[in-house]
Amino acid sequence: MKFLSRAALAATVYATLAATAAWAGDMVTVTDITGRKVEVSVPVERVILGEGRQIYFTAALDTDAPFKRVVGWRDDFKKADLDGYNEYLRKFPEMDKLPTFGGMKDGTFDVEQAVALHPDVIIMNIDAKAATEEAGYIDKLAKVGIPLVYVDFREKPMENTEPSMRLIGKLYGKEDRAEDFIKFREEEIAKVTDVLAAHPDVKKPVVFMERAGGYSDDCCMSFGNENFGKMVEIAGGINMAKDIIPGTFGTVNPEQIIASDPDQVIVTGANWELYVPGDNWVGLGAGADKKEAARKLSALMDRPGFTGIKAVKDGNVHAIWHQFYNNPYQFVAIQQIAKWLHPDLFKDLDPEATFSELHKRFLPVPYESGYFVSVNYGG
């Protein structure tokens, strides 16, 4: 009986979609970030976000009403960025009632639930592609007229952020808004790259980027030549793990940190109270307690692999909001990293002001400090 009800549901939804296709919008073919050609009726009015944190880019386009198209989303936003979730919840309490999904990669995405919500499109992150294809979700959704597109702000964000924003702008009917965002992003990155280009002989410090330090007892997750690893390079540093980790993400051991003796350490962190309650992670995000974040960051430097290295001895230890790794705001992170690595060159650069300006121009919530922290040991 359950199988029949699902089949009946799918048939009903398909008939509804077919009947409304003619007036729902213009049918266009878009190219997603993987190169797939996908037919979508635009502007879309009903969207399922394959990750809750995709509200970061949705809010930059649908600033006045960021949830107006969202009919369902993955349940990760609250868990992965509790401070950010609460920031949005205060202004948009209705978001707490949106239907939530599990993930493609962990096999908990519910296709029947998605079909019942009548979405015009499902937006997935590229890291879910293998699991999506293995489960045959694209074909299942296509049979009931629901297109799926991939975007990427995580695997190769410096390469894929602009085309991803253009794709979403096309889907939302907000192409001009997307171009405004892209222009702002380019201008802010240029405030770093132009200065470095004018000082080609500047010494580049070796930087160890620790991904989610303190999230677990293991040491240490990091980044290869992408994501935060690429941001370090753009900001005028040398990513310590570039030649150790072959892909975007990986691990290094304490002995490799000691041998490399990095000049700077930058740890990513967020409020992960719902993932790992009361643990050693550095809680950063909107309105975070910087004093508590600095205390936790300092404690992380007592682990094997960090005690005695140059960065700790010289007082060049920092933490940055983890979620810069998965949204289109990476240019703020690039500015902050550049300021840490080259304080003399970038003494007039103000990443906090940049992030505040981003909020004023593109986001529906006011800027609250709490995304960066440093600890100094003297030296």
Rank of each mutant, 00 (worst) to 15 (best):
N376Y: 11
N86E: 14
R166Y: 07
A333T: 06
K170S: 12
K310I: 05
V28Q: 15
A288R: 01
A11M: 12
G229H: 02
I266D: 05
Y215A: 09
A293N: 10
N376T: 12
H118N: 09
V195I: 14
L82A: 14
E159K: 13
L4H: 11
R53P: 02
G283A: 14
H118P: 01
V312G: 12
F324R: 06
Y88D: 01
F92W: 10
D62N: 05
L167S: 11
I266V: 15
G378M: 11
E51V: 04
L358Q: 02
F355Q: 07
W23I: 07
G379V: 11
V192N: 06
I122S: 13
I55V: 13
K78S: 02
D64I: 03
K129I: 12
G236P: 00
N280I: 01
E87F: 08
Y172D: 08
V40T: 07
A293R: 02
I245D: 08
K191W: 11
K313P: 02
P343A: 12
A270V: 10
F324L: 08
W340H: 03
F92M: 08
K347G: 04
F249G: 04
V265T: 09
A114C: 02
V42L: 10
P66D: 06
L300W: 03
T20Q: 15
V206K: 15
K191I: 07
L284D: 02
G50V: 02
D302T: 14
K129P: 00
A288Y: 08
A178T: 06
L167R: 13
Y329C: 06
E133N: 10
N239L: 09
G237F: 00
K204G: 09
L9P: 02
I168H: 02
K78A: 01
D314A: 15
Y85K: 01
A131N: 04
F228P: 01
V111R: 07
M104A: 14
P93M: 11
Y85W: 15
A197W: 05
N125P: 08
F153I: 09
V282S: 05
M1C: 13
D75Q: 09
I320M: 15
D83Y: 09
L171W: 00
E187L: 12
K230C: 00
Y377H: 12
A311F: 11
M1I: 14
A190Q: 13
D139N: 15
P364K: 07
M209G: 02
P66L: 04
A259M: 09
K203N: 08
Q113Y: 01
Q330S: 14
H318T: 12
K156I: 05
D64T: 12
M209L: 12
D344E: 15
I309D: 08
N316M: 13
E51Y: 06
I257Q: 00
G50D: 03
S356Y: 00
Y325V: 02
E87Q: 14
V42G: 08
V252G: 04
F181K: 04
V13D: 03
D75F: 00
D289S: 11
F184C: 05
P99I: 08
E186T: 13
I55E: 01
I266W: 04
P262A: 14
R154W: 00
G136A: 09
V375P: 01
A333W: 04
V373N: 04
D26Q: 15
D96S: 15
E187W: 09
N280Q: 07
L89D: 04
G370T: 00
V121R: 07
